[in-house]
Design a protein around this nucleic acid. Structure first.
Lengths: 205, 205, 205, 205
DNA sequence: ACCTAAGCGAGACGGTACGTCTGGTCTTTCT
DNA sequence: AGAAAGACCAGACGTACCGTCTCGCTTAGGT
């Protein structure tokens, strides 16, 4: 999730850690105010109180910077135990919807996804920093449901992986579409309807 | 879906209809070769054999132009009668996936969606030109299924609208996520799995 | 002094004579308000209530149009009999200075002169329409002075031509320089000083 | 030791001095080849091997740039001692004529003079960079003539200034008119005739 | 207590695209 | 055939960012 070189230098002035923080925060601030297309690295540098060179020393460009800035937003996702699989899912979907409702998330995430359609390295970075990072939630939810006896343990690991992917595509896709394309709030009512359909579809014979 | 005024002018040289076609085609060509971020209106004009002014006379900017260029791609969606609701859905989802697999669709659509998060007029244009335009498919599918007796007629019109929206969010969202984020092919197998879950979820008591 | 074709057409709608007048007046008006560099033919056409095509049908471009527009301003120069050669010269120099003080004259004349340094046809047009047209004043002044006995008749016609040219360069040059470069008023006092030097220089043994 | 030398600490990369030279030379080259009206700043930048931004960082526009480019041409004017006032004047007038005969001088100077009729700041710049800068020649010539005893020392300083201005208007005006409007060479013969008239006019009782 | 290599803020640099404007031309309908 | 309207191609305009490159400093660790 960090800049390029994680190898520490032996000599010379060390890089300022504060600069990284300031830059990412400034990036999110600029995303809120300006959106992706009007966000400029010069402006981010100014907001962060940093020279453009400092910024370019750490990130290759706008895409990489925004991926890192947005990725931090998703780390607050959690899976508290709400007592049932349905409630757990509703809870995490709602959290996801809340994060996606923030303008910096919407603008930044959609933009880098758009860019990633022509840049495999970028897509890999997005998956590593954002997407795959959150599959833990699906896995944790399934495990908890199996413990509760709500789901039968999946035996075929390949089939399990396919199911996780499908669930992920359906959950993330639906919420994103609701928030970005339909531009309607993914509120509790909607989440309940969605979760009901999803769960019925997955558990019906 | 077209430029601003559809009102025909009484006087002066009329606008060239050929220019519109050439510009939209050139836009798609440029999207394939360059992607959204490297697409420039000057280049599109050159490819179309048209002056920049001609382009700006018809579209306000890159966003609007790409919306129209991409919208045409979705008009080929159809709903042939495949005998059952499940087969009908699978058919149209597959068509949708095929269209989305094209690089110009992915790049263009995702980019304008990203832009639309900060531009209500643009989002409205996208919905009018692309999204709502295809809801006809959902409605046609439901009607056919009711005729076949696969679905009971929905009595509450408000509830019906909500359901259509939910289906749309789930279908479009999942396919887009599969193609763009997961970057895996939305092939027949995936479509079958997805359709099964969706249909079960919707029809289970 | 007029546009291209002076040959009257036998057939078709005749050209509007009012248009010429309106265009030249609009040109001078635009020169006053905008100056040469910001004067556009589209704007002139609009001011004149005329289509651009009408304008281009009569003049080849901005240069030719402005030459004609400015030339009309110089036609009001006269040489009233003021009783003595010195007074006659002072009178006409003053008239010349008054005309040159008008913004449209200054801007327009200087600009077309600048353009004429690289365009022989334009320079010829300027000489024909403006410069040589006014040499009549020098000739008339000389003739009147000879009649009064103030000047001896020049016998050598070639020498006479050279002198006329020199006088013209000196008079026109000095007044233009005074008005445009020095940007000081060529008022009566200055004209008297100038005329004195010129006349002394020409008549001293 | 710690003086109040508040020299503005030069921070950031210093401007390239070579760029200025290259730009002015390129401007003169372009003036020769294209003339004022077809000279574009983009082209000048290309010729100078410089980005457009570099050019605009230093000059506000075409006018200012050309003034500076032309001003350098006039700095080669000198007043060598030719033994008599008449010879001195002839010499410097001839030099002036030679400079004015160059196409870049004619085109550039006349064009900025034309522009200056509507732009006081530009006219001030022209006077400071070109015109007043050369009044030194008139003053030096007068001083030398007084030393030689050819002219009586002028007592009234105001009258002296007026005379200098008049001489300047007459000399510069006549040469410019000869070269630009009449488009005849200001050769030795013409210069001799002109100088004779001027000097007689100024020195006759 | 220096040395030195890297980091830093500042800002100029060569480029590229922007969206606008103007110059001339062409096409349409009306006169 | 001329005129008004306005679309058309071509290309310059001046601006904004890009990502790179000097500058003169600062800040450490290694000697």
């Amino acid at each position: 999730m960090q800049g390029p070189t994680s190898v520490p230098r032996a000599t010379g002035r060390p890089r300022s850690a504060a600069a990284d923080t300031a830059i990412l925060a400034a990036t999110r601030e600029a995303l809120v105010e300006l959106g992706w297309s009007k966000l400029t690295l010069g402006d981010v540098a100014t907001r962060a109180g940093v020279a453009k060179t400092t910024l370019y020393r750490r990130w290759a460009g706008k895409n990489e910077l925004v991926v890192d800035a947005v990725a931090e937003l998703f780390d607050e996702l959690e899976l508290p135990d709400r007592g049932s699989l349905a409630a757990d899912i509703e809870g995490v979907v709602l959290q996801f919807a809340v994060i996606l409702a923030r303008p910096e998330t919407k603008s930044g995430l959609m933009a880098v996804l758009a860019e990633s359609t022509r840049d495999d390295a970028l897509r890999a970075r997005i998956r590593a920093s954002i997407v795959d990072r959150q599959k833990r939630l699906v896995l944790a939810g399934r495990a908890r449901a199996e413990t509760r006896g709500e789901l039968a343990p999946e035996t075929d690991p390949e089939e399990a992986a396919r199911t996780v992917d499908l669930i992920f595509d359906m959950v993330a896709g639906a919420v994103v579409h609701r928030c970005v394309v339909s531009a309607e709030p993914a509120d509790e009512e909607w989440v309940r309807s969605f979760t009901r359909v999803l769960l019925l579809g997955l558990t019906s014979a």
